[in-house]
Design a protein around this nucleic acid. Structure first.
Length: 350
DNA sequence: AATTCGGGGGT
DNA sequence: ACCCCAGAATT
């Protein structure tokens, strides 16, 4: 039994709305310019799409401007050292994206002479480009008529079709329903539907009176469209606890080291910590010193809550291996994730 | 099919 | 507090 009744979407109405209300974004070609034949730079579209994976437009903007200023083309990015890319990505989260971004730039240069593939299928074979991103780039840059299904569209379509199961249980049907409605202006349509989801059909508020999908939206016909999509149950967020050790030498430089290349905060920079476990271990300092306690830092990851006790001490500069001593003035440029910036701030070193 | 990956903005 | 965000890779 089908989960949805895939009645048509009025793509013409959506495009007409987009022509008047498209958001002005640094990586976007306006619908007016697109109509004049201007096409987006695949490098910039790709970079923006990777940054926007599970990340808000507001958070991405300054990173996008910085990256395109430092590395204006895929050749520039491919030639950059990975640690420079990680330093610039610091704070944006999901750091596997940065490693894949760099690997993808190299692949495009080495396997495709610096030219991005022009089909979603070709794009999806590249690192860090999955079902969504490949479709988005192919539609936006090349008007491939393919369904572009992101979190916004999940919500818009769940309301439009009044989907009464969690989205993950109807992903294929939603994609097929959308695919059947993709018009010739595939790139503008994809961006229009995402803008619609971001501004009109928002998570908590649905401004149905001004929505171009009226009057065909089943979610609005009967009751409250914000009841959709229905959410699966979510368990508790576990807690992990540990100690963080901020060490300075006689000159005030701070001891830093690199995390393993894979996994949580992979490849990023940290201050030494204990293991993170359910129960707080008894503190074991890395080296002898006059250790002071600076209270606790709490950091929320997607799948657990971390509570770190923050300690600091001046220590001899020759007693540690593997890492390096960073002048306080250089901390801003280190590849420090937000967690460790919070730890340093708690110890008075921000 | 489920889990592992950050961090911030909106409500 | 909680939700969600232009998801992908791994298990």
């Amino acid at each position: 039994m089908p989960l949805i009744d895939p009645h048509p979407i009025n793509a013409a109405a959506v495009l007409a709305w987009y022509d008047r209300h498209a958001r002005d974004l640094p990586w976007r070609v306006s619908p007016a310019d697109r109509a004049k034949g201007v096409s987006p730079d695949p490098y910039r579209v790709w970079l923006s799409e990777v940054m926007l994976q599970q990340t808000t437009v507001a958070a991405v903007q300054k990173y996008f401007l910085r990256f395109t200023q430092l590395w204006p083309t895929v050749f520039d990015l491919a030639a950059a050292p990975l640690d420079a890319v990680l330093r610039e990505w610091a704070g944006l989260g999901y750091y596997a994206r940065a490693r894949n971004l760099h690997a993808c730039a190299i692949a495009v240069v080495e396997r495709h002479s610096g030219i991005f593939p022009k089909t979603s299928e070709g794009l999806q074979s590249l690192p860090g480009i999955g079902a969504y991103t490949s479709a988005a780039i192919a539609a936006i840059c090349f008007d491939e008529r393919i369904a572009v299904l992101d979190g916004n569209l999940d919500r818009v379509l769940a309301r439009y079709y009044r989907l009464d199961v969690p989205v993950r249980d109807a992903k294929d049907e939603l994609r097929a329903a959308l695919q059947a409605n993709v018009p010739g202006r595939a790139g503008d349509f994809a961006q229009a539907m995402m803008d619609l989801g971001a501004t009109i059909c928002a998570p908590r508020v649905a401004s149905c009176l001004i929505c171009p999908l009226q009057p065909d939206c089943l979610g609005t016909r009967t009751g409250d469209p914000t009841m959709f999509p229905v959410k699966p149950e979510r368990g508790e967020r576990p807690v992990r606890r540990g100690h963080a050790f901020v060490m300075t030498d006689a000159g005030g430089d701070v001891y830093l080291q690199s995390r393993p290349g894979k996994g949580l905060l992979g490849g990023m920079t940290e201050v030494p910590t204990s293991e993170w476990a359910t129960d707080l271990s008894e503190v074991a300092y890395p080296v002898a010193g006059n250790w002071r306690h600076h209270g606790q830092v709490v950091h929320i990851f997607t799948h657990f809550r971390l509570e770190l006790e923050v300690w600091s001490s001046e220590v001899p500069a020759d007693g540690l291996a593997n890492g390096w001593w960073s002048p306080r003035s250089a901390l801003k440029g280190e590849a420090l994730p937000t967690l460790f910036r919070k730890v340093l701030a708690q110890a008075g070193l921000d």
